[in-house]
Design a protein around this nucleic acid. Structure first.
Lengths: 349, 349
DNA sequence: CTGTTAGCGCGTTCAA
DNA sequence: TTGAACGCGCTAACAG
């Protein structure tokens, strides 16, 4: 009996709901014998309503099966409780931890998330943005700092709080949570040089941030007299197959690297697999450097070095920045968080 | 000059917009010298408007920087162009291909996606659903067929098209695209028995579908006289660490399996890693069976067998089912697609 | 092809 | 603490 739900066809109650669609605030108000606004308050600001009213209203809500219409609410209040998140891809994504943490925080704060996939393309991001702005999200989270001029303008005009994540830049759109990819490239170079490696090569997907890490690596190597760094740049998304192909093509091109730097751990694992299938020992014959520490990838192969990025922390910081801004819409601080990274060497376990 | 965008503060034009917020249909209509509805039509149904009007409107749109408000539009038309997708997790997800394909199709059809993470919990799904229904999505995609009674009722009452993906069941909520997990378990059992394996063990995360595959496997094995199947069930999400721990604990418990069946390829790779670090040869000392064929995981280790699931196809079919239903809201057919699966053996490459 | 009227279902702002 | 009036910005239905 307690489980019974009023259906439009049921006529058990005197005040049968006639309309076709789902019940509205007015329907609930009639059943409860109060005004619509009291229903609204009982639901969204229970503390300003008397115990008695609240109970009457909640009973009526249960009876009618009422579900509040956020569309109408948002239109009236100009608050959508919606945050748009743009990601390059969801496949084998290094961003999984970030998104998980971010969504967890937002959900517990009563926000919902609209997801957009940009495929590492600023143009696609622009198109998506165009569509998403129509939804008037309270906040927008972008991956990276590469956006079209049109996107930048629209975002600026919209006045919507924006967080750029997973990168750092000199001219942020608004808020910023990430780390320096140039820093990563340079750190990798120094680390590997320090261990005595000489013949470097790179396997990367064509992702803007990955390429910047590579360029920085190459630059740093050049500064140390290493001018030739054979590079395989393959198409996203980053799969194991990319790593296998990358190493295969390097070797078939006659290269004999003593270390391969990869754009992500997934790619690195592909490289490891290809090396294994060729009977190459890691790291004696060839060392492999990954990036991301996707689920502690370093644990997979005792000889895989990688760069650990705390994706969860990024997500947490992004959420905190947004929620803070939602509270104080004109709070002065421009958030800019450098989450850093950690080089994880095989010996440092 | 072409890049110039009218800002509220600019007074270049005679018809300066005074209001604070973003420009509305009415603002655009005034600038264009037409009625609001004409603007609406020029934007959303250009074919019913004369070339001349359309151009006037588009010019005014550019001038004002107008972005149509889907909240108001949805409220008036009762169409949100929003699809909610519920996933257990985004971390290392076997659903990545499905989501990617699904979102690609929906996006190109003009729909946007609200993402919800349920953490393999029907209760969490119920809470999320409660919140998401307020957004009046045009469609809902759920992972699996395990839902609370309350969720089932609310979904039924809402009348929103629902697709349950990645599973099959006898009493679907509405539409259904997936495959039989019992079928997978039985197929694995038969296959491995056929290859002569005798000492089975299982490493799984506690995911409803994974456990059903296991149970089916165990049942089938029992039918063949194998009654003892040591099992390690660990906490989601599926990480490499889960696989390492799983095998470790099996071995430390004194088990000596000749084959380990895993709930996913990620777990399987963890098992492979642990086996390697113990100097065990695969498949001579121990064989490993995965699930999902996440980015052709079988390619990683020449001796890994797995079950290939076409996640992309699932996503495509889900999208097609939804879009079809959107077109014909009362179309008779109850969609039910069995997408099947393929056992991929190490020799069958 | 274009315009007019009348809401969609709620929250804000005032008053009681 | 509760309620009445109004408008959020847009589209459906009809009229011209």
């Amino acid at each position: 009996m307690a489980r019974q739900i009023a259906k439009p066809s049921s006529t058990a109650d005197a005040q049968a709901v006639k309309k076709a669609g789902s019940p509205t605030l007015v329907d609930v108000a009639k059943v409860a014998g109060v005004s619509p606004i009291t229903v609204s308050r009982a639901l969204h600001r229970p503390e300003v309503v008397s115990e008695e009213m609240r109970e009457k209203v909640l009973a009526a809500v249960r009876q009618t099966g009422y579900v509040s219409n956020m569309l109408a609410g948002a239109l009236a209040s100009k608050k959508t409780r919606l945050v748009a998140i743009f990601l390059p891809t969801i496949a084998n994504s290094i961003f999984a931890d970030t998104v998980q943490a971010l969504m967890d925080r937002l959900t517990e704060a009563g926000y919902q998330t609209l997801l957009g996939l940009t495929g590492y393309s600023a143009e696609q991001e622009e198109k998506l943005l165009e569509a998403v702005l129509g939804r008037r999200p309270d906040g927008i989270v972008l991956t990276g700092t590469l956006h079209t001029e049109s996107s930048r303008l629209r975002l600026a005009q919209s006045g919507i709080p924006v967080v750029e994540a997973w990168d750092l830049s000199e001219d942020p759109l608004d808020m910023l949570v990430g780390f320096s990819h140039e820093g990563v490239g340079a750190a990798i170079a120094k680390h590997l040089l320090g261990k005595g490696y000489q013949r470097f090569s790179v396997v990367s997907i064509s992702d803007p941030r990955g390429l910047r890490r590579c360029n920085s690596l190459v630059g740093e190597l050049a500064r140390h007299g290493i001018t030739s760094v054979p590079m395989q740049v393959l198409t996203p998304p980053a799969t194991l197959e990319v790593g296998r192909q990358g190493l295969k093509q390097l070797l078939e091109a006659g290269e004999a690297p003593d270390v391969v730097v990869c754009s992500s751990d997934t790619v690195a694992q592909g490289v490891l697999a290809e090396a294994a299938s060729r009977g190459m020992r890691v790291p004696e014959d060839i060392a492999v450097m990954g990036f991301g520490d996707l689920s502690s990838a370093a644990h997979v192969h005792p000889a895989l070095s990688t760069v650990r990025v705390d994706g969860k922390r990024i997500g947490d910081q992004v959420a905190r920045a947004l929620l803070e801004r939602f509270k104080h819409p004109d709070g002065g601080k421009t958030v800019r968080v450098d989450t850093g990274f950690t080089l994880v060497d095989r010996e440092s376990t």
